[in-house]
Design a protein around this nucleic acid. Structure first.
Length: 429
DNA sequence: CATCCACAGGAACTTGGGGGCA
DNA sequence: TGCCCCCAAGTTCCTGTGGATG
């Protein structure tokens, strides 16, 4: 992304001067927060009205927020949060911590992170006596106690936003939530309220009923955007992002329609929009056209797939490679047993630890969740119950990316006839 | 209709690497 | 240094199961 290079080099000059598409590309990033969030007024008002008591130093109800990805949940909560902090600057202290539970996914880390954010915001007061909670090392209950101390010391109301709360529950159970919902009864001087954000309705099933009832005192649902609403969202940003006249007529509706098909994901719509623009820019065309949008759609799909595979652990890549071998041998659908056998055959040849079948099944499920492969459990009667899996995307591309891993280098020149000689006997049916 | 295959996938445990504290 | 924690990745052991087949 050549945006900050020295213009005197000349190499990048044309990117700077021939700027006939973008005015400001940042506007199209999903990290960009617009002043207005179209079609989300009711939700914003609702969140605001629930949080309002905190300005009178009362404990607001806990909130659970649902909605698919890209429906504006995080953006709305962040918006209300900043407004709230602004409004509280005169009255009692009232703050908001935002945690993404996909990254911060254990009880320890959640507690430590909350404490840390309190700490940082207190730095201006320059009291050096405060103890720092280390990233790891302490017993969890000590962190919990320290968090309580800090809360008591700062006072006021703290709103804890747990984004992607379902991830937290799935990975480390509901202990964290249980403790957090109970923390108020241990506090005298301060109050805590929790906002949980989830895109998975079913995570409630994993919760203790007591935790659930306390957590979901209020529930707000963010419906997916439909195509016309997405049009509004894109149109709103188009002004800031693109130079006038750089957009062909059909571009915004097409981006919206494509994203609306994918469960009304505004993030997806913006990506499409931005990448279409980038493609047009690179083409040196003077306008973004519908053709660019279609290209962008394809690019997003392969790019995210490649990115996803490239960042996989080596073991997972080797499992993928085993499937690729089966595919080269003419099979379109593989069972976990077949994949396992091939895997356990090649793993030693490239000095990799050989994982057990149990572990392989887990990695296979992971690959399925990432969308790299498809799986389904089938029963073949007398011939047992197994998991079938298959590719539905470009296997050459996958092969190429997998082989980029330096530790799989030795597999590069494994050709089809070798494979056949080696594994045909394994592959009987 | 019971059997039995070839696994799925849960639970508990181990290993090794992050760290704190006295 | 020794003993305590936390955590991810992996292993061991295990129970469960859909449906073709004898």
């Amino acid at each position: 992304m050549p945006e900050t290079e020295d213009p005197s080099t000349g190499l990048f000059k044309k990117y700077l001067t021939n700027n006939r598409i973008f005015k400001n590309r940042e506007v199209l990033r999903h990290s960009y927060r617009p002043q207005i969030l179209p079609h989300r007024k009711p939700q914003i008002e609702e969140v605001a009205s629930i949080l309002a008591p905190s300005l009178r130093n009362e404990t607001p109800s806990n909130i659970l927020i649902y909605g698919k990805t890209g429906t504006g949940k995080t953006a709305c909560v962040r918006y209300v949060g900043t407004e709230l902090e602004k409004a509280s600057s005169k009255g009692p202290v009232c703050r908001l911590v935002h945690l993404n539970c996909e990254v911060i996914d254990t009880q320890y880390r959640v507690l430590a992170q909350i404490a840390k954010s309190l700490d940082v915001s207190e730095e201006l007061g320059s009291d050096k006596t405060r103890t720092h909670i280390p990233m790891t090392g302490w017993p969890t209950d000590q962190v919990y106690a320290e968090l309580k101390n800090q809360l008591e010391a700062t006072g006021g109301v703290l709103v804890i936003v747990l984004d992607e709360i379902d991830k937290l529950v799935k990975k480390s159970g509901d202990d964290t939530l249980y403790n957090l919902t109970r923390i108020n009864s241990d506090l005298k001087n301060s109050k805590v309220s929790i906002i949980g954000i989830s895109n998975d309705l079913s995570f409630k099933d994993f919760l203790d009923p007591r935790v659930l009832s306390s957590l979901s005192e209020e529930e707000i649902v963010f419906p997916p955007y439909n195509a016309p609403q997405l049009v509004d969202i894109l149109a709103q940003r188009a002004d800031g992002a693109f130079i006038a006249g750089a957009l062909a007529d059909g571009v915004i509706p097409l981006c919206s329609a494509l994203a609306a098909q994918e469960h009304g994901d505004a993030r997806r719509a913006l990506d499409l929009f931005r990448i279409s623009g980038e493609l047009a820019d690179r083409d040196e065309s003077s306008q973004v056209t519908e053709a660019h949008v279609k290209q962008a759609q394809a690019k997003i799909e392969t790019d995210s797939m490649i990115e996803c595979i490239a960042t996989l652990p080596t073991q997972s890549k080797l499992i993928l490679f085993s499937m690729l071998i089966l595919e080269k041998l003419g099979q379109n659908i593989f069972t976990s047993g077949e994949v396992s056998r091939i895997y356990q055959d090649i793993a030693p040849t490239i000095q990799l630890d050989v994982l057990t079948h149990r572990r392989i099944t887990d990695l296979i499920s992971e690959l399925n969740m990432l969308g790299v492969i498809n799986t389904r459990v089938v029963s073949r009667g007398r011939y047992g119950r197994t998991k079938e899996m298959w590719f539905d995307s470009n296997t050459d591309k996958i092969r190429e990316v997998v082989l980029k891993d330096s530790r799989l280098n030795g597999l590069k020149d494994l050709d089809a006839s070798q494979m056949e000689a080696k594994w045909l006997k394994t592959w009987f049916r």
